[in-house]
Simulated scan of single mutants.
Amino acid sequence: MEAVSAIKPLIRVAALSGSLRKYSFSTGLLRAAIDLTRETVPGIEIEYIDISLLPLLNTDLEIDGTYPPVIESFRQKILEADSILFACPEYNYSVSAPLKNALDWASRAPNVWANKPAAVISTGGDCGGGRSQYHLRQIGVFLDLHFINKPEFTLNAFQPPQKFDEEGNLVDEAAKERLKQVLVSLQAFTLRLQGK
């Protein structure tokens, strides 16, 4: 009998942070996720997608079914990804304006979010951004995104021990392990939806 290969097919993950701040903890979570895939989660390649250059949604910018180059490039990266990883900060109990703007641009016809597996992670005070996650999941229903249900990842950034360094890098080992489990779950769910 042939040995079954333990190597999983490569999945490409587009990672978006809803925070534009230079030392954002949300973006720090994505950096940690990228590092984890290089070190301990083979079969995943994460590309950070910068949404800071996207103009505010304005359908006047759509001309004959085309979009400005920055929007076309962003939409193409989402389209080519096998799955999506959102780092979703909580602003006033909801998702941030930059993230909502990105969601809206990629939902314009044709909707490039459709049928994508996704995961959401967040950090902040109190409930660690959990309320924004539930709002994002609600938006995802309309966009036809398919979120993993477990494990959930919220992180209180201000409760000891220290979670992030001065440059917004995740330093808490327990949080890194929890983040790793999210990536493993996203990988398994993506492969399952792909029939692999």
Rank of each mutant, 00 (worst) to 15 (best):
E90S: 02
P98A: 08
P89Y: 08
I51R: 12
L79Y: 12
Y93K: 06
Y48K: 14
T59V: 13
C88I: 01
L103C: 11
C88Q: 04
G43A: 08
G43I: 11
D60Q: 12
I63C: 02
E80R: 12
E62Y: 01
S96L: 02
V95A: 02
P68K: 10
A87L: 06
N101V: 10
E45W: 04
D82Y: 10
L99K: 05
L103P: 06
G43D: 08
L99Y: 09
I71H: 09
C88N: 14
A87S: 15
D82G: 02
T59D: 15
S94G: 13
R75C: 03
S73F: 00
S52K: 14
K100M: 14
P98W: 09
P89G: 03
I84E: 06
L56M: 15
K77H: 07
P42H: 04
N92T: 07
D82W: 11
S96E: 08
P98I: 06
T59F: 07
S94H: 07
P42M: 04
D50L: 10
A97Y: 09
Y48N: 09
D82P: 02
L61D: 14
S94A: 12
L85Y: 05
T66K: 15
S83R: 07
Q76V: 00
W105M: 11
I46Q: 04
L103E: 13
S73K: 15
I51Q: 10
L85M: 05
E90D: 06
Y93R: 14
G65Q: 11
S94P: 00
S52G: 12
I63V: 15
Y48S: 10
A97D: 09
R75W: 07
F74S: 09
D64S: 12
A81Q: 02
E72M: 11
E45A: 10
E80S: 09
L61R: 06
S96K: 04
V70P: 05
Y91A: 03
S94R: 04
D104E: 15
L61I: 01
F74R: 09
N92A: 07
D104Q: 14
S94W: 01
E62F: 00
I44H: 02
E45Q: 14
E80G: 02
S73N: 13
Y91N: 13
Y67A: 01
S52V: 03
S73E: 15
D104S: 12
A97G: 02
D64G: 00
P55Q: 05
D82T: 02
L103R: 09
L54T: 05
W105N: 13
I44T: 04
A106H: 13
I84G: 03
K77Q: 15
Y93F: 11
L79W: 07
A106P: 07
E45M: 09
I84M: 12
I51W: 10
L103G: 09
L79V: 00
R75K: 15
Y91P: 00
Q76I: 00
I71R: 08
I49T: 03
D82L: 07
